Amino acid sequence: MSSKNDSNTNSNAPANSSDDARAELTAQVEDLLNTLSNKFAGVSSEIFAKMDEMSRRLDNLEAQLVSVKDPKTSSN
């Protein structure tokens, strides 16, 4: 009977090893996806901040151009 138990143990070992490897791979992929998601969120925030800054600067430039073009409006 011990030979049957040994063969069962041996046949289960690759399945358990395969399951462990699959679980480890899944965990690593999920970690990678989380890391990429966090980096994407950070880059997105930076881009939006730069766009807001650019919009503010363009608004200031537009106001300066309007005041230079029509000096009557800047004196009022």
Rank of each mutant, 00 (worst) to 15 (best):
K69I: 05
A63Q: 01
S44R: 10
N10R: 09
A21S: 14
E46S: 14
D70M: 03
M51W: 04
K50W: 02
D6H: 03
F48Y: 10
S55P: 01
R22V: 10
N16W: 00
D31I: 03
P71D: 02
S18R: 11
S11I: 06
L33C: 07
V68R: 04
F40E: 12
V29H: 05
M51G: 01
M51H: 08
D19I: 13
S37T: 13
L33S: 12
S37H: 09
P14F: 08
N5W: 05
A49C: 05
S37P: 00
K39L: 15
R57Y: 02
E53F: 03
L25F: 10
P14T: 07
D31H: 06
S17P: 00
E30P: 02
L25H: 12
K69P: 01
D59F: 02
E62R: 07
I47D: 00
A63P: 01
T26N: 14
A27G: 06
A63H: 01
R56E: 10
M54A: 15
D20E: 11
M54E: 12
E46A: 13
S18V: 05
N16P: 00
R57D: 12
L36D: 08
R22F: 14
N5I: 11
L25A: 15
L65M: 04
N8A: 08
N34V: 04
S74W: 00
S18N: 13
A49Y: 02
D31G: 03
N76I: 10
S18G: 11
N8K: 05
D6A: 05
A27W: 02
K39F: 05
T9H: 04
N12L: 07
D19H: 08
L65I: 03
M1W: 05
K72R: 12
